[in-house]
Amino acid sequence: MKLEKEKAKHLAELARLEVSEEEAAEFSHQLSEVLDYAGKVREAPVEGVEPTIHLLPLTNVFRDDEVKPFLTREEALVNAPRREEGFFRVPRILEEN
């Protein structure tokens, strides 16, 4: 399958990435090659085969509902690029008014 340059740009938009024209062209070229190869999954004899959702036959791993110590607020914020009064700080999200 050919992945057009415009499609590569659209995917980047969905994934919150910026790509230049050259990058879009390069990704389009490289991913087209990957999809040409990986496209063979569509020809595999999988009629009636269930997809693998999980490797292990584990269901509902429960634990007791007990409060246990984990990170303090300070520890949780220690890697924050910006913080203010015990919160993560980000640019304004809501409009004024």
């Binding site: 995917l11 496209g39 999954v41 569509r42 595999a44 999988v46 085969v49 997809p51 693998t52 959702i53």
Partner: peptide, 18 residues
């Protein structure tokens, strides 16, 4: 993505079963 999920992702998961 919606248009490719069945063709690629789902088939890959079925191959995984095989």
């Amino acid at each position: 993505s919606a248009g490719s999920y069945n063709d690629y992702y789902l088939n890959a998961q079925k191959i995984r079963t095989l």
